[in-house]
Design a protein around this nucleic acid. Structure first.
Lengths: 338, 338
DNA sequence: AATGCAAACTAAATCGTTAAAGTAATAGTT
DNA sequence: AACTATTACTTTAACGATTTAGTTTGCATT
């Protein structure tokens, strides 16, 4: 009981494979009959037989000949991170509605893995790729561009890369609003915990924090922690901040946020009285937390949607553009006015 | 600058495409030379040229001829749900290490969408599929089995389906432990909020709750809410439970958990004094919540890993088996001893 | 009755690779 | 010197679809 092929259908009806292919690929007229130069009777017989034998065209064979793959690739550092999986969900949904399938890969922040994934996607001759770059992936991405595969960057930028589409959250604007909100709320000693990670969106958030603080005449201070020893270092940073009388803490990534939150709780500090907390990342649990946590939404739905649309435009020959998504801030009790 | 093909390499070196293909696909010897019946000099020249021209074999063409696709399909109701994306991450990682790529799809609990996705995956002739079935997908899945595509069910069962692999959390055992823990903690009026959804894992959790309650001589009670009006109905259920003096609430799914938590908070009730809460699902935020939330881990890492391994075994011809993952419970402050 | 033309089909090439079978040249054996 | 084995390749035929370029048939037209 091997797969049913065009040849099987053709033999069964005593016609050529060409005819079958024509009928099956023809657009349908209003009355449901295929719009091609094949007689209605024959055409309907083909349709019926294909249905009866549960014929599914081999996309692999069709793709080889026609050059159309109907396949997209998406690479993020980690699909199990909410911001990425959320974007992935939107991309997959839109793609599916247009007849495209999506291959996903996790780079785990490793350029080597990213290269492997991209090579494989290129080998599958995907029609387009959406990537959240990781540190050190510039050259690898450039190779994709050189292969003329439409490429859209999301979440993080690689500035020196030409000919790609870009969809980012406005990290500079969002962080400015975060600091403004805290200052208006009466906070002065506002500090940040960030991560030693060569990623531009993080640098943008840090720089915007620093600049906005200075624009208010306040002194910025950032604790830097290493990605692999994050948990203990974050704990230390929180404790040090508490000793120094820091009034508000800003965390720019989800893991930092969760680790900081845990450290604050474990230290027996209460939020926002002892220390306010603003998370520049999203978790479905922030709003149900007690106190509710102020956060910047990553707008992953918009990022995903816009990235997909841009990719489709680029697949149609348009040049890549840059889209900045306006951040959405949720002001919860964790940064209640002093 | 079209794609580089075998033919290009062959022409450049004045040899046949077969030779190139042989060299490139040969396993490497210790000294790095390909282990095939091609002269070392020629072989090395091939390797070098392929490198220089950045040749990537067309997986599509190779797959068509060889019948090997190195492609897996994964369908879950929603990749952005943590339990699913976590499992997906493990599957993708293991698959990648074995040279397989993974296509993901979200069924959004719709059998129609599931069918479309499965048809597409079948059209891509994936080597195997891992699915979290949604309600009403039995016949659709049966079609896949009939096409001899190895299929592994995760998270939810479809009992009447033969010839598939199964990897589930032991929902009956986990819920028994939840109730036992609450009873030992001094709780008596223990109720559950569940969802009108035709999914066996949910029924298992409900039945296990009921049976365990009765085994303690306690009366079970389950509020049923509809999936689409879940938020308001959950709120109502929580308020009613509070009126009735319910001491502990069990929620079997993440959205129900979040909605219940929110309703409890909004009602100004304190956990666990006014009402204890045990969530039979996972969120990265439970442990950092205050109070920390007791939960049953979905063990998505294990589910993903075991599902992948079973799929690989089935692709090798082994029959499908069933694996029950032992649940891991986290006892937090939300169900502290009375 | 010859011509043109549309309608309804078919044959054969092709996409880029792999697999099976074959060949030519060299070396080793008796 | 004749025979066998081994090495290092090549030729040809797939895989299952799509596409290009026909071919056949029937009917209307002149």
């Amino acid at each position: 009981m091997g797969k049913v092929t065009l040849k099987d259908l053709a033999k069964e009806l005593g016609v050529s494979t060409t005819l079958i292919s024509r009928v099956l690929n023809a657009p349908r007229r209003e009355d449901g009959t295929p719009d091609c130069d094949i007689g209605k009777d024959t055409a309907m017989k083909v349709l019926e037989l294909a249905q009866r034998l549960n014929y599914k065209p081999s996309r692999i064979a069709a793709g080889l000949r026609s050059g159309k793959r109907y396949l997209l690739g998406v690479i993020t550092p980690d699909i199990s991170n909410y911001a990425f999986s959320e974007a992935g969900r939107y991309i997959e949904e839109l793609a599916h509605n247009d007849g495209y399938s999506v291959m996903f890969g996790s780079s785990a922040e490793s350029p080597k893995r990213m290269e492997e994934l991209l090579d494989i996607f290129a080998g599958h001759e995907v029609d387009g790729i959406i990537v959240t770059p990781c540190a050190g992936s510039e050259e690898i991405l450039r190779k994709i561009v050189r292969q003329n595969i439409p490429l859209v960057l999301i979440n993080r930028d690689v500035p020196a890369l030409d000919g790609v589409g870009r969809v980012f959250l406005d990290n500079i604007g969002s962080m400015r609003q975060v600091v403004e909100h805290l200052v208006k709320g009466g906070y002065r000693k506002i500090e940040m915990i960030s991560e030693n990670m060569d990623v531009l969106s993080l640098r943008d958030r840090e720089n915007s924090y620093r600049e906005t603080m200075r624009s208010f005449g306040l002194e910025p201070y950032i604790y830097m922690v290493d990605s692999d020893t994050q948990e203990t270092q974050t704990r230390d940073a929180v404790l040090e901040a508490a000793r120094k009388g820091t009034e508000a803490l800003i965390t720019p990534r989800i893991r930092l946020s969760l680790n900081s939150l845990k450290a604050i709780m474990d230290a027996g500090l209460s939020i926002p009285e002892d220390m306010a907390l603003f998370c520049h990342d999203e978790s479905p649990a922030w709003t149900t937390h007690s106190p509710s946590i102020s956060y910047v939404s990553q707008c992953s739905d918009q990022v995903g949607t816009e990235a997909y649309r841009m990719l489709r435009r680029m697949m149609g020959g348009s040049p890549g553009e840059q889209i900045l998504i306006a951040p959405k801030l949720f002001f919860g009790d964790s940064t209640r006015r002093k």
